[in-house]
């Protein structure tokens, strides 16, 4: 079961500010879902390997060639969606 404290920790890890109201609202809903997920405990998965990739592919590479396969962006394109920018840089908040 997720307690309010756990929710706060998840909120911190996921950088999601949660209001008191959010926490009240989310806790029972998340718990009912987690409760449901608990059904997987019934499944015997001993000696079962996890499937991370559904297709049995490996060794997919690109050659060390410039601008292949994805094309580069110009500085203007790169910055075109920046909410804040300065002198060709993206502008982020202060560190501390």
């Amino acid at each position: 079961m997720i307690a309010k404290k756990d929710l706060e920790h998840m909120g911190w890890l996921a950088r999601l500010e949660l209001s008191e109201e959010d926490k009240e609202k989310y806790t029972p809903r998340l718990n009912s879902v987690l409760d449901y997920f608990g059904e997987l405990d019934e499944v015997d998965t001993e000696d079962v390997e996890p499937t991370y990739h559904i297709l049995p592919m490996n060794n997919v590479f690109r050659d060390d060639e410039v601008n292949v396969p994805a094309k580069p962006l110009t500085q203007e394109e790169a910055l075109s969606n920046a909410p804040k920018k300065q002198d060709g840089f993206f502008k982020a908040p202060r560190m501390m």
Binding site: L7, M10, G11, W12, A14, R15, L16, E17, L18, S19, D22, K25, Y26, R29, L30, V33, L34, K84, A92, P93, R94, M95, M96
Partner: peptide, 26 residues
Amino acid sequence: DSDWHTTFSQVRAAGFGDEVKRRILL
């Protein structure tokens, strides 16, 4: 803007809807 931790958390809190937040948290 405030410090980066707070700004990130506030941007994401303001930008995502409830269902998205629930799935991110879970």
